[in-house]
Design a protein around this nucleic acid. Structure first.
Lengths: 237, 237
DNA sequence: CGCGGTATTGAGCACCATCAAATCTGGTGG
DNA sequence: CCACCAGATTTGATGGTGCTCAATACCGCG
């Protein structure tokens, strides 16, 4: 399930600027390389960790997409999606067990590091401590944002808001922006947004008909950001 | 608006065990006392900070209750409530500006500390760094939990879930548990849960009629936790 | 080419939002 | 102490959004 290729040095990583390496001085990067396990391959559908198992590692997405999901009332609910440069497992450090199950949506690469080793590094390199706070603060802000998306709006507005946010995240680490891929199923999106899959489908059609987006299968293109924003604003609620 | 009484030493604070003081050794606590501004009084309705203003301080609720709210699409939405022992402003450290407005719901006391001073203390006392990570991790986990509450369930289930969670938080810092107070308006609860105020009212009646809770005004008593849990489980969705 | 899972589209209905009115509450001033 | 008022809460009636069930269309894969 988890094959490990030859470790690629953190100094060579494209994501280093916004990842753990940015927290410590160049000359000390070798300390990190011994702690981080890079380029773990996960095939589509394979699981990084399972809900309620002992939480030990933090994961960073290098390529690909993951989702976290949890069982509530005997039904699975998709908590979140994780794109390259994003951290999986931040919420489980304090609790001792993973709060949800992390699954690869497509073939993906992740780096991993033990919570304990990260804590030890923080003690030696204060810059890492600042980076942790910053990372967490951003994650919390994103969570609030998401909550607003989900709470406030009607179905098509929620989807529009989700697309705007997803597009922003996806285009952070790529130059050209010729649309983006939504590798997850409609059902996953529906679960994440608290809607039915059919409603997602209808909302996609609505956004498409209004000229805000175009879609072919799971590939989406934002044609008119202004129109899309109007959908986000749409009442009721 | 913000009167400051004589500082009460952090060593004497009831909440010290789960607050910032727990992050550093007893002998160094005096460093904290000079950085923390304790016992700031906020009357009901008064504002700690406003959305989009420069973010400088972290706040810790000592007594009372606060809410954070933000303007979205020209309507106010309640992000969260904050009870004694909880931190306000964690999500705004990285962004530079407060992501929402914090308002006292009843007469309350808070301590405050500058982000910068806290960062400086973290560098000197590694224990504070661990505490920060733990605090943030818990906050993130709580946010996910909340998202599930909001996303998943029908109206009465959402309210039931909210009550269970709120009761747990409120009873953390008090011995006897003879019901609890909900000092916020129904409208606030409604906004937080993404429902209409009338729906909250009806859901309260439903929970009450089933024998799960009793209520008189804003005071709520959980009569039968098992029945309440059944409401949380309730389909549809 | 045929199969299984995913996505879309359609019809009917339930839940909740909205509007409206009545009741309750707390606070103020007579 | 009581009358009064504004805001909050509850209760009622109605309509719309989105869920459910069902059928069809689409896609990837053997």
């Amino acid at each position: 399930m988890t094959k490990t290729t030859a470790n690629t040095d953190c100094t060579e990583c494209m994501l280093a600027k916004q990842c753990v390496p940015s927290g410590l001085p160049l000359k000390d990067l070798f300390h990190l390389n011994s702690a981080v396990n890079t380029n773990n391959i996960f095939e589509a559908e394979s699981v990084i960790f399972r809900q309620n198992t002992t939480a030990t590692h933090l994961y960073i997405v290098k390529t690909g997409v993951f989702k976290t999901q949890r069982i509530i009332n005997d039904t699975e609910h998709v908590d979140n999606f994780f794109l390259p440069g994003e951290f999986i497992g931040l919420d489980s450090i304090a609790g001792g067990v993973y709060a949800n199950t992390a699954v690869a949506i497509e073939r993906s690469l992740v780096c991993k590091i033990e919570y304990r080793q990260l804590a030890a590094l923080r003690k030696r390199f204060p810059g890492l401590s600042d980076l942790s706070v910053k990372t967490y603060s951003n994650a919390l802000a994103a969570a609030s944002e998401q909550q607003n998306t989900i709470t406030l709006q009607c179905a098509s507005a929620r989807l529009a808001s989700f697309l705007v946010s997803y597009n922003k995240r996806a285009s952070l680490h790529q130059q050209v922006n010729t649309g983006f891929n939504l590798p997850m199923t409609r059902q996953d999106i529906a679960s994440h947004l608290g809607l039915a899959a059919e409603t997602i489908s209808r909302s996609f059609s609505k956004l498409s008909n209004s000229g805000a987006i175009s879609k072919e299968g799971r590939r989406v293109n934002i044609l008119d950001a202004a129109i899309l924003q109007e959908h986000v604003m749409e009442p009721p609620r």
